[in-house]
Design a protein around this nucleic acid. Structure first.
Lengths: 213, 213
DNA sequence: ACGAACCATTATCAATTGAACAAAGCGAGA
DNA sequence: TCTCGCTTTGTTCAATTGATAATGGTTCGT
């Protein structure tokens, strides 16, 4: 254990250390939580992956739960950078299209967020309540409103309204959520920007047949 | 469902007891595994929910893992009863439509299967390997073949091929997988057969715009 | 140079986990 | 009635969990 293999810091890093451990811990926790869920991820496994020691988790974050929330905060920050403009659209179709594309690109790059949510979303626990209250809630309401607006224009597919948003979320994220399986079936897949854009546009047209371009 | 939940054996049950404990344990484990994942579900919580004792799990099943596999076997048995005909179709469109409807109806009644899979599918572990090898594998290949067949006829939406099946699976199951959230947003939803049929048809037409009925 | 604040590191805690074991209960057949 | 096989029940174990305490070292302000 005492070897230099698991040493957390390189010799050159003097003060980079400060926030660096936090960063390493968050990145490691993102992987572990996304793979194994909250209960399945142990703080020791996270620490090993981060090249740190287990008590450092309780030092830099107050608890395992707080680390989990920090991971989610971090992922949603990254997500928002993919959905940047957000609200500057006049045409709901443009907004819808931009949102689908942004979510596709984000899910391809960071499938961890969807995986993390899927682990918690099967029931209502404290973590899920926090997630809905502090992140998903208002965001989701806006999406529902855009969908209503599109429906009023007669553009939407005849999917049951209550399910439309979640069906779309599923269609967008599940292929990336289950990427190991996609590749098991189809072999390695490459996600050039062009392919992802084509995919996003396909989904838009599937859910908005009224566009009939 | 069982009326006497907190009692392991009803007084009347003489030999019904034999397989009854197995049944109770599987039902309880289905709930616990679906809610909390494999790691998050404890054998003690399962036993309490089943009105049984924790060591009975290792007696009737050899291990927690074996119980999990029994749960999955049970759920797939129920699924197959929803997708009954399976292979008697000449027209791939009929087969596709029947499959979507079956999966919608099943997911509405037993969202546990999708939830259970979502918990495991984020990475490849022993459980996921077993699940793919013994249940999902050939089933999935058939779906991919049907999709190819539909694509050859120019019926499919221009979704990236490798993602089509998984996007559809996501669109079908996620609304039921995340039912607590659907109801949090839209209030209680009722799943009359008619509504579910309408929903399934909407999804079919979304992914097969070539039908343009 | 001194001490204070910060952080890494080791060791250890109580609680919970899945599993194992032994003994008792119980029904059926000889 | 007695015995045998299956099941239940109570207890216990080793391992793992998240968290804390204690110690040591480094950096910076004064």
């Amino acid at each position: 254990m005492g070897s230099s293999r698991d040493r957390p810091i390189a010799d050159e890093s003097r003060d980079a250390n400060d926030a660096d451990v936090r960063r390493q811990l968050i990145d490691a926790a993102t992987v572990e939580f996304a793979r194994n869920g909250f209960a399945g991820a142990s703080t020791r496994a996270i620490a090993v992956r981060a090249g740190a020691h287990q008590p450092q988790i309780n030092y830099h974050f107050s608890s395992k739960e707080a680390l989990w929330r920090a991971v989610v905060d971090d992922l949603f920050t990254q997500l928002s950078s993919f959905l940047e403009p957000e609200g500057t659209f006049e045409d709901p179709v443009d907004e819808f299209r931009q949102w689908v594309l942004g979510l596709v690109l984000f899910s391809a790059e960071r499938p961890e967020l969807s995986r993390l949510i899927m682990h918690e979303a099967a029931s209502y626990n404290d973590r899920m309540n926090w997630l809905v209250d502090s992140h998903v809630g208002p965001y989701l309401e806006r999406r529902v409103r855009v969908w209503s607006s599109l429906k009023d224009r007669g553009l939407t597919e005849a999917i049951v309204d209550e399910f439309a948003y979640f069906a779309l979320i599923g269609a967008i994220t599940i292929p990336f959520c289950l990427m190991p399986h996609v590749e098991r079936v189809h072999g390695p897949v490459d996600y050039d920007r062009a392919t992802l854009e084509r995919h996003a546009e396909g989904l838009v047209r599937a859910f908005l047949p009224g566009l009939d371009s």
